[in-house]
């Protein structure tokens, strides 16, 4: 154990025994190279095996370990103790989600929203497996940024709109829908339009912009939503002006 320690104030909720959440404080050894996830694992290993949280890759790509750190949504594998030391760190589950237990949130709602935007490549034709679909580097660049989403859900925790309208599709799901709409190989824009153009779709967004600010992978969901608003609007006018399906 090093001489210095740091305090983690951790959100606890055990549905088997608790009616409401509590905060439990743990003193944890302080190492400069430790991330908050290391500290949580140290607690689980050495002090309190009942503390539950999700994690896996510990390199910022699996998207499991998002939590509220002093009120800000962060990946705990990429948030270093040294950026908070010597003050205590408050660790809570992501907001805007029900809490299953401790730091584990219920993700069902996000999974159904993600599915609803049809995040897969839609083509009218079937193509032989010998043939690549050509795509130039600039066509790739047009959507690449929006394909980088790791589904860590930090953007959902940062979005105040979801508090007012829990049915709002939310940043990550819209960004992924937009990613496929922008893909030169995709022909499914029309199929995604109804869900994107609905009130719970892009219009649920008032452009707070925090989703983009907290995104650990620079996906820019706020940008995706605004671009989708423009696309949906253009499409609406086209439908209005060309009522014979010539879209």
């Amino acid at each position: 154990m090093p001489e210095q320690t740091i305090t983690l104030d951790v959100f606890r909720y055990r549905p088997d025994e608790d009616e409401r959440s509590t905060i439990q404080s743990y003193d944890v050894p302080y190492y400069e190279h430790w991330v908050i996830l290391d500290a949580l694992n140290w607690i689980k290993d050495h002090v309190d095996g009942t503390l539950s949280f999700r994690w896996s890759c510990r390199m910022g790509v699996c998207g499991s370990c998002g939590m509220m750190i002093n009120g800000d949504p962060k990946l705990t594998c990429a948030a270093f103790l040294k950026d908070y030391f010597p003050r205590a760190i408050r660790v809570e589950p992501l907001v805007n989600f029900p809490v299953e237990r401790d730091l584990v949130i219920v993700m069902d709602d996000f999974m159904s929203k993600l599915t609803s935007v049809k995040p897969w490549l839609i083509r009218d034709d079937t193509r032989p497996m010998e043939e690549e679909l050509l795509q130039s580097p600039s066509q790739l660049a047009a959507y690449k940024q929006f394909s980088m989403c790791i589904n860590c859900l930090l953007c959902y925790a940062a979005c105040p709109e979801l508090d007012g309208d829990p049915d709002f599709l939310g940043p990550a799901a819209i960004a992924l829908a937009h990613r496929y709409n922008l893909d030169s190989r995709d022909q499914g824009t029309a199929e995604r339009q109804d869900i994107l153009g609905a009130e719970e779709g892009v219009w649920g967004c008032a452009l707070v912009g925090e989703c983009t600010a907290v995104c650990p992978k620079n996906v820019d969901p706020a940008g995706a939503i605004q671009q989708a608003k423009v696309a949906v609007t253009k499409d609406w006018y086209k439908r209005l002006l060309l009522p014979w399906g010539k879209r």
């Binding site: 083509r123 497996m129 690549e132 580097p137 790739l140 959507y143 394909s147």
Partner: peptide, 22 residues
């Protein structure tokens, strides 16, 4: 090769040559 092309058809963002081939 067939499997990687299949993944391409499912939308995998493979890096590309200037002419559009993977």
């Amino acid at each position: 090769p067939k499997e990687l092309i299949q993944l391409e058809h499912w939308g995998c963002p493979w890096n590309r040559e200037p002419d559009g081939h993977v």
